[in-house]
């Protein structure tokens, strides 16, 4: 859990980039920061891993004030995808991706396996790309490497600054899906900066709308669409998007509401469904099989999450799951 308490950033030249903001990112949630260029998104994000110092206020992670934590240690447990990609040009893709695992002292066999796994995940053949240098990759491919480099050290928190901006629409959607799946299945806490409202609505659990350094509204995608708090937010969403997205609610997929898989919790003969199944399908199977839980499988057919009876009801009734967050992988911080 990341908590901002009245955080302000004034740069040396007097620019107030972030003006007294407070918000919370719950563990396992994906929160997007959105707003026009220069509104302070990057600054807000970089204060979390102390790349930018805080002028006043506090940021804490799981209740621990970050100003009392050692920067280097803190950063090794926070994945960071920078806006300008920033791959190290003199290191191969493998070396780039394995940087943090190496800094954390992983064994060679472990991080090599991880590199292959991550490259596979973003659709780049390890045998082909592992030994290439960043400049031998296209812009979009470089951006994928930037993303998986942040995941390699298995940090519980990931900061992503417009990570998909250089991708073509198809790869972007694909990576958005991957990210959402990943976040839900292994319970990552993600802060994601974007200026693309469609992207925010698609992947966010919560959206923080910013303007001129302050927060305009914090809401779930649905709430944001239904109740934009002021004219600015309304115009930022845009009229036809509001209509379009409301309609989309019927097309929600199992992966959007699933919760992390806890193997012990699931015993006996539990039905499996693909992550792409509609909520209707989930409900139908629950009713016909008279079961309380359903296991959700990823693209490769392996279980990645579960949906409980209760979770499904909450979602269909439009009630946010309270206190149901957290669970596995939370012992890293």
């Amino acid at each position: 859990m990341i908590t901002f308490n009245n955080v302000t950033k004034t740069f040396e030249d007097g620019t107030v980039a972030v003006d007294d903001i407070s918000f919370t990112v719950k563990k396992g949630n994906l929160v997007t920061l959105i707003g026009p260029s220069g509104c302070g998104k990057t600054t807000t994000m970089k204060m979390i891993n102390k790349l930018i110092s805080i002028t006043s206020g506090t940021i804490s992670i799981n209740g621990n004030d970050i100003s009392e934590q050692e920067s280097v240690e803190l950063r090794r447990n926070i994945g960071y995808v920078i806006q300008r990609i920033g791959l190290l040009p003199h290191m191969t893709i493998e070396e780039n991706v394995s940087l943090v695992p190496k800094l954390k002292g992983w064994k060679k066999a472990d991080y090599q396996k991880k590199v292959d796994e991550l490259l596979d995940m973003v659709g780049l053949d390890p045998q082909v790309y592992k030994n290439r240098y960043p400049l031998e990759l296209s812009g979009g491919q470089q951006q994928r490497i930037g993303v998986i480099r942040a995941l390699a050290g298995e940090p519980p928190i990931i900061l992503m600054d417009e990570p998909f901006s250089a991708l073509d629409p198809i790869s972007r959607q694909q990576l958005q899906d991957e990210l959402k799946l990943l976040q839900k299945s292994i319970n990552k806490t993600i802060v994601f900066v974007t200026h693309d409202m469609d992207e925010a609505l698609k992947i966010a659990d919560e959206i923080v709308v910013m303007k001129g350094g302050s927060i305009q509204q914090i809401a779930t995608p649905t709430e944001l669409i239904q109740n934009p708090i002021n004219e600015f937010v309304r115009s930022f969403i845009g009229e036809d998007r509001a209509k379009r997205v409301t309609k989309k609610r019927e097309e929600l997929h199992a992966s959007t509401i699933m919760e992390p898989l806890v193997p012990e919790q699931v015993t006996g003969d539990v039905p499996n469904l693909s992550y792409h199944s509609s909520l209707q399908d989930v409900a139908r199977v629950m009713l016909t099989k008279e079961t309380e839980t359903i296991i959700i499988n990823g693209e490769d057919g392996k279980p990645i999450g579960v949906i409980s009876h209760q979770r499904l009801l909450q979602e269909l009734a439009g009630i946010r799951a309270g206190g149901a967050q957290g669970g596995i992988h939370s012992n890293l911080f």
């Binding site: 790349l51 280097v72 920078i82 300008r84 190290l88 040009p89 940087l99 943090v100 800094l103």
Partner: peptide, 17 residues
């Protein structure tokens, strides 16, 4: 490039590294 340095810092490299 600043972006490269920032990536290094962000990943938790020490100034010496």
């Amino acid at each position: 490039d600043e972006g490269i340095i920032e990536a290094g810092e962000g990943m938790g490299m020490t100034p010496r590294q």
